[in-house]
Amino acid sequence: MINLQISPLQARFWKENSSFAWPDVDIAENDNEYKFSFEIPGTARDDIKIWMENDILTVSGEKKKTLPENGEQLVSERPYGKFERSFRLNKPVEKNGVTAEFVDGILIITLPKAVESKPREISIN
């Protein structure tokens, strides 16, 4: 299971399960890995930072807005700004094997489980 870690500022205002946590993420798990997929469309690869400290995975960055040079903004719905989300993993992962890719605006982080976290069949003697 995965627990959420929330920044004190966020905690003061919203529960983490409210609609205000951003960017949206899907968290999946199978026998071998955890897979996080964040929707961060229109963000430059260099503006995203991923790091692991102990058992906490943090993704932060900034979705920058390029203002129109000589135009007028008629509609503005897309969210911009700084973001940060942290997740505590309850099972150990192979830190050196963590990979990340950014395809079509989706950041996919794959964290292979450490041997001790993988399910293991025990034979009966």
Partner: peptide, 22 residues
């Protein structure tokens, strides 16, 4: 899908967020 629309003298530019789509 969230969209931004900018109008300039010569054109309109619409940008729509569709992450994960081809």
């Amino acid at each position: 899908p969230a969209s931004d629309i900018v109008e300039s003298k010569d054109s309109f530019e619409i940008s729509i967020e569709l992450p994960g789509l081809k």
